[in-house]
Design a protein around this nucleic acid. Sequence first.
DNA 1: CCTGGAAAGTTGTCCTGGCAAGAACTCTCC
DNA 2: GGAGAGTTCTTGCCAGGACAACTTTCCAGG
Lengths: 165, 165
Amino acid sequence: MNRERREHLELWEDLVRAHAAIVGRLEHEMEAEQGLPLRWYEVLLRLSRAPDGHMRMQDLAEVVLQSKSGLSRLIDRMEEAGLVSRQACPSDGRGINAAVTPAGRHRFRRAAPLHVRGIEQHFGRHLVPAQAAALRSLLSELLEIHAPAHPSEPLGGSQEHGQTA
Amino acid sequence: MNRERREHLELWEDLVRAHAAIVGRLEHEMEAEQGLPLRWYEVLLRLSRAPDGHMRMQDLAEVVLQSKSGLSRLIDRMEEAGLVSRQACPSDGRGINAAVTPAGRHRFRRAAPLHVRGIEQHFGRHLVPAQAAALRSLLSELLEIHAPAHPSEPLGGSQEHGQTA
DNA sequence: CCTGGAAAGTTGTCCTGGCAAGAACTCTCC
DNA sequence: GGAGAGTTCTTGCCAGGACAACTTTCCAGG
């Protein structure tokens, strides 16, 4: 019982370290070779994926893991750089759509291969199929528990942490 | 080939999301229930583990994944809070040892169960043995590649990224 | 129609962290 | 033993991000 817990702790620690190391590399490479902060790339990626190249600020904030205010300023900077633009949302007067500009798409297309290659090289490359399968099932479990895929809980509510055991 | 890559990309995305979600919870719980930023806890943990309750600033910075300057200020704050203290390093005049104070140890002991429980609840609990094993082997591979366990490369050098494929 | 409550974004303010420069010290080699 | 190169830590400065307050808009109920 306790043995298992100890192992889980170690796994968590290692996971955090590996995550940090890989993200660090990806950030550094993206910045060095494309002059693009990883966050910017993330935004461009999400917008490029989106149906008409635009998303509501709120939704975008969620997928790129930033606060509303954080995203607002991020979009400020990217707008100034000409990579995205803000547009009023037709269906909701309060809403704003962040949209990729052509320049943004171009920038994204140039940067994408680097990111794909980086992930493969620093991560995917080391996955054997059994590990990939295990990881997939684990992550889907974890995300189901944690991620507000269907925004149902504010996540900040500390609504549980009861001694479920 | 491309199929596999696509899957690796998805796995990476999911990993990032799961990591963020779990860290978010741990941070929130630690702050809410113990009034302790997770970083502070990390420092207390490392120092409590260390032989005489102290570590060189540099080494500490590495294990808690912060820059030298970041750690310096972090220790400033914790010192002011009475949880750690700075001591001259006897063997090297340039060095500073960060040491846990008794108050720091006390605080750590009170907080540790929460952290352990949190990790088990948000992470370990969902691991079946096969996943744990797969994860362990994967992480050790990744860390061997990436982590400067033996500080040999500055990590910022972008010394490879050649198309190894 | 009007009012009150909720939601979307933006902005003021503050905190944290990184980089680069600086101060203090150590080590090597002449 | 002294000069110069390299470490270790701290500090000035700035960028990025979070929280809370605010404005505008939407919606439900009377």
